[in-house]
């Protein structure tokens, strides 16, 4: 293994651990909020009415999306490297595409939700 690749592996491991910490915290907040907010059913329009346009929630889910986009492709990279015969360059490219896809589609959704308000 080339010298710089060792650096990359160690840093990716740290990035995956830190993003896992953010995700664990995020999932707990997400689930607790759902349990707390649902009182005899909750419609989409009610959700948008309560949190749509709220900067705090938009930031929270924005961070969540970034954490997913960091965490998932690193795991995918390990799986592809171990389970397929793809070269490591191809795997890195695929995982970079996966990360870009997650961050773009995720942040687009969060932004759209932020601008959505029920009148």
């Amino acid at each position: 293994m080339s010298a710089s690749k060792i650096q990359v592996e160690a840093r990716l491991w740290l990035a995956q651990r830190l993003s896992a910490f953010v995700l664990a915290l995020g999932v707990i907040i997400h689930l607790v909020t759902i349990v707390y907010a649902v009182r005899g059913g909750l419609s989409a329009s009610e959700v948008v009415d309560r949190v749509g346009g709220n900067l705090g929630w938009s930031l929270f889910y924005g961070i969540f999306v970034v954490a997913v986009a960091v965490h998932a492709p690193i795991g995918l990279r390990a799986i592809l490297n171990e389970m397929t015969s793809l070269t490591s360059r191809r795997v890195d490219l695929l995982c970079f595409i996966a990360a870009t896809f997650l961050v773009v589609t995720g942040l687009r959704t969060v932004l759209a939700f932020h601008h959505l308000r029920v009148g």
């Binding site: 060792i6 160690a10 491991w13």
Partner: peptide, 15 residues
């Protein structure tokens, strides 16, 4: 070892 190498990588300790 994963922890120690991660911190070493951050500090540039891995070549």
């Amino acid at each position: 070892l994963k922890r120690v190498t991660a911190f070493a990588a951050l500090k540039g300790g891995l070549k």
